[in-house]
């Protein structure tokens, strides 16, 4: 999995590419830690190029969501494909994360 970080104003955009599975959860967790350490509290995860997420990937997103909540921050997701949305919906975590169709909508009011 590749992780690209982009900053627009005070929003951090984390663009993921590949499969978000247990072998890459730690890599993403370390990226999230650095984002928090740098004082960022508004994070958008771009799922456009994520074909597959497993339960450990969901756990990693939840962990970041919780850490951001602790510091008054927010996390949103965009470009999540239909099948991955299905996985979020079954576990009901989609109610915690804001899931948006595109970047522009997700960044509004982040």
């Amino acid at each position: 999995m590749n992780i690209k970080i982009e900053k627009i104003n005070d929003n951090v955009i984390v663009k993921l590419e590949g499969e978000l599975n247990m072998n890459y959860s730690n890599m993403l967790r370390e990226t999230f830690k650095k984002i928090l350490k740098d004082g960022n509290i508004k994070v958008l995860i771009d799922f456009e190029k994520v074909g597959f997420i497993d339960s450990s990937g969901i756990a990693t997103l939840l962990e970041m969501f919780q850490n951001l909540e602790k510091v008054g921050g927010r996390m949103r997701l965009c470009h999540v494909n239909k099948r991955n949305i299905g996985v979020f919906e079954i576990t009901k975590v989609h109610k915690l994360f804001g899931i948006f169709e595109n970047r522009e909508d997700a960044l509004k009011g982040l």
């Binding site: 969901i58 756990a59 962990e63 576990t91």
Partner: peptide
């Protein structure tokens, strides 16, 4: 894992899914 008391847990979703 979808109940309010469990939804923040980091494990326990695999078999449920």
């Amino acid at each position: 894992p979808t109940t309010p008391e469990n939804i923040m847990q980091h494990q326990g979703r695999g078999i449920y899914l």
